[in-house]
Design a binder for these strands. Structure first.
Lengths: 193, 193
DNA sequence: CTCTCATTAGAACGAACGCTCTATCCAGGA
DNA sequence: TCCTGGATAGAGCGTTCGTTCTAATGAGAG
C-alpha cells in the first residue's frame, strides 16, 4: 500500500527528476542527484523505474507536460478574448521565470532538444507535450469562433513563439522577449479575426 | 606558423565542437569525442583551449553564431520584401533540417538552454548570438521602411518564433511548424506596414 | 504469531568523464 | 648546426556516471 498521509516515493522521484531536468537538462542530471533530491535511495529509483534514466526522463517530461497544460488551461479559461488570453499567458510565463531567478524555463524544451535524434522515447514524450499544449490553445481559439483549420495553424505558431520567447528570456535574463511575444501574438490573432 | 595549405588544427577543433554540440548538446559531447572528430589529439585541444570544455563551448557557440548570421544575411538580402524574406528564411531552415534527417537543429539553442544559469560564459555567448541575429533582422526591416522601434521589437519576435518553430520541427520531425511560422510571421509583418 | 513481498538500502562494477602531465616532434632564426 | 618554442602525442589522474546486485526492512494477510 502507498504511504498513507505523506506523498508517495514514486511521485517524489518524478517531481525531483522533472525539477532537476528543467534546470539542468537530461545529461547533466545524475541518478544519485535525483535520489538525493527526492529523499529516496537508488534502489527505490530502480524499483519504480527499471528502465533507468530514460524511463525516468519520460515520466518527468509527462509530468512537466501536465503541469504546464494545467496552468495554460487555467489562464486561457480566465480571460475571454483569445488575444488577451495569450497575452496573459506571456505575463504568467514572465512572472514565473523572473521569480525563479531565470532558472526555471520550460520544463520540457531543454530535455526535448537534448533527446532529439538520440533518445527516441524521450523525444516522443516531448513531442506529445508540445502537441497537447497546441491542442489546448487550438480549442480556445475554436471556442472563440475561429474556423477549425485557422485555429489549428495559429495554435502551432502561438505555442512555438511562446517556447522561443521563453528560451530567449531565460538566456538573456530579460522579460522583454516574452512581453513582445504577447503583444505580437495578440496582434496576429486579431489579424485573423 | 599555421599549417599552410590545409585547414588549421584550431579551426578543425572549433568546427567539430560546433557540429557535435549542435547535435548532442554541451553535456553529451566529450572532449575525447571532439579530438577524435577533429582529427586532433587531446593535447592539441588543451593547447588551443586551455580553459577546457567551457572555453571550447564558447568558441563553438560563436562559430554557430557567425554561421547562421551569414545565411540569415544572405537570404534577407536576396528577397526584397521583408515578409517574403522571412518566409524564405523558414524555407531555408526547413530544408536544412529535413536534409540532415532532423539531426541538425539550431547550432546554439541546445547549448544555450543547457548552459543557462550553470555556465555563465557560454550563456553569455548564446545571448550574444541571439542578439546578433535579431540585429540583422531589425536592419532588414529598417531598410524596408519600418520605424526603428517597431523594427527592433518585431525582430525580437521573428527570431524567437524561428527558434521555437525550429525546435518544434526537430522534435516532431515535421516541416509544418516552420512553414506555419513563415506564413504567420509574414502576416504579422504585413500588419505592421 | 508467521509468512510474504513490495520497498528500502547502499556497496560495488566497469566505463567514461574532464583534465594534468611529461615527452616528443619539427620548422625557422641565429 | 644548434636552439627555441609552438604544436602534437597519449598515458594516467581522481571522480562520477548509469547500472547491478544482494541483503535488510516492515506492514498487512492468514
Amino acid at each position: 500500500m502507498k504511504t498513507k498521509h505523506e506523498i508517495g516515493t514514486r511521485e517524489r522521484i518524478v517531481r525531483a527528476t522533472s525539477r532537476l531536468m528543467q534546470r539542468q537538462g537530461y545529461e547533466a542530471t545524475g541518478l544519485k542527484e535525483i535520489s538525493r533530491e527526492a529523499e529516496a535511495t537508488l534502489g527505490s529509483v530502480y524499483h519504480f523505474f527499471p528502465g533507468g534514466k530514460q524511463e525516468l526522463a519520460v515520466a518527468a517530461v509527462r509530468h512537466g507536460d501536465l503541469e504546464f497544460a494545467e496552468t495554460l488551461r487555467e489562464v486561457l479559461d480566465r480571460v475571454e478574448d483569445p488575444a488577451e488570453a495569450v497575452l496573459a499567458c506571456t505575463e504568467e510565463l514572465a512572472a514565473g521565470m523572473r521569480d525563479s531567478g531565470w532558472l526555471d524555463g520550460c520544463p520540457v524544451s531543454t530535455v526535448a532538444l537534448e533527446s532529439a535524434g538520440r533518445v527516441p522515447d524521450v523525444q516522443r514524450a516531448a513531442a506529445e507535450a508540445f502537441e497537447n499544449w497546441r491542442a489546448i490553445v487550438s480549442a480556445k481559439l475554436r471556442r472563440s469562433g475561429f474556423a477549425d483549420d485557422v485555429a489549428e495553424d495559429l495554435a502551432h505558431t502561438i505555442i512555438n513563439t511562446l517556447e522561443g520567447a521563453e528560451m530567449s528570456a531565460q538566456v538573456s535574463q530579460s522579460e522583454t522577449p516574452l512581453r513582445l511575444a504577447g503583444r505580437h501574438l495578440a496582434r496576429l490573432i486579431a489579424a485573423y479575426r
